[in-house]
Design a binder for these strands. Structure first.
Lengths: 223, 223
DNA sequence: AGATTAATGTGTACAGCGTCCACAAATGCT
DNA sequence: AGCATTTGTGGACGCTGTACACATTAATCT
């Protein structure tokens, strides 16, 4: 006989815990990943606790080891999923840019949208955003398929595309194009971090948004 | 009778563990803080483990609770100490700027030095740098005395000073001065994070330095 | 179809963690 | 000298990640 586990947080989310009538779960890998993502969303990286993840999936703690080498491996998977969601947020913001007919103007608007989407996601999903850029080994997964959104691109690739457009629209000299991803990325990433984790945490959304637009102005001028 | 604790890492740093012949330690608060700082320096935030800190100080785990409310309190203290060290690194870099007689040129050079010091510290002490900007409640300790370097200023205040100089040298319009700390800070902070934790970790120091200077160029142009 | 192998989940156990409580030892105050 | 306060100890509790042996089910091969 095997028993089902119950969460310590059962009071409010008992209904979320997957009950199961078969010995095999069926799709435990996905269930674990989704539970972990949800925990990260609500409580940040420290909230991802292997035993709680398995509790929510309705399996014994050790079952996780059949699908992830260890906790770090699960965290990396969450990180990539978070990048994918970030990519979606960026593309969603990109989609709001209506072509004006002016190629240069549109390219700039798209770059701005990329930055705005990044900042918006960071503030609306701080837990996931933090996960997106921790636990990396190198920049290899900046182009890893698991980190892509529905458009098939990672956040890094979306930004690269916007910068390429800027060049072909004649708004960015080619000699400044190289490695400019890192410059734009740094600025927006830094503001995102300072807004959610850093010393300007707690400043209102209006103030944050205004600051975000000024930051993007700075990048546009300075690139 | 009371026994002294020994670290699990005794093999190589037995000599570092404070032995003690008196029941009272004498300066345990400082000893704990310094041990925690050292752990953060070597292994990052996750390496700060209360029991290991007390082991290195040669006291029982619970002794820490006479000097810090809990682990979080100790982490905040380390964070402030890290900010202080960052301030020192920035001031050290500032000190290398020789006055040229040209006020405008000097103000720009000092702003660049502030950014360079920031980036240099982040790369030479990544563990401490990460601690400096985590575990904050708000921006109140951006000006907290415990976060100041030997010059009596926090990193934030040093940056503010450099920007004020830029204005009085006529190199930055006054209407752009307001909140410009956050713009400059964001850019440099973001690059620092991406260099040490993010996807461009592992890129050589030369490349990082070149990128840093290009980023500072961008800020100068775009502010 | 039946047997064997592989995949997946369980149970038990261990060391380490942060923290609570009661107690011991040293210091400071009147 | 006596007492109150501060500082450190010892033991316990519930939690964590994970190793190992075992149980159950699904897949593969005769």
């Amino acid at each position: 006989m095997w028993t089902l586990y119950t969460s310590t947080l059962d009071k409010e989310n008992m209904e979320k815990i997957a009950k199961r009538s078969t010995y095999r779960h069926g799709d435990l890998h996905r269930a674990l990943l989704e539970a972990a993502i949800e925990l990260a969303r609500k409580g940040g990286k420290n909230a991802i606790v292997l035993r709680e993840v398995t509790r929510q999936a309705g399996v014994a703690p050790n079952a996780a080891y059949r699908h992830f080498e260890d906790l770090g491996s699960l965290l990396r998977a969450v990180s990539m999923a978070a990048q994918a969601q970030l990519a979606d947020a960026m593309e969603k913001e990109l989609a709001t840019v209506k072509p004006s007919g002016n190629k240069a103007e549109d390219a700039r608007a798209r770059l701005r949208a990329v930055g705005t989407g990044y900042l918006t996601f960071a503030q609306s999903e701080p837990g996931l955003f933090r996960m997106a850029f921790s636990e990396h080994a190198d920049m290899s997964n900046a182009t890893h398929p698991a980190s892509t959104g529905h458009g098939g691109l990672t956040p890094f690739q979306i930004l690269s595309g916007a910068l390429d457009d800027l060049v072909s629209a004649g708004e960015l000299p080619a000699e400044r194009r190289v490695a400019s991803e890192f410059l734009a990325w740094s600025a927006v990433h830094g503001l995102a971090m300072l807004l959610i984790d850093g010393p300007m945490r707690g400043s209102g959304q209006a103030q944050a948004e205004a600051l975000g637009q000024r930051l993007i102005d700075m990048v546009e001028r300075g690139l």
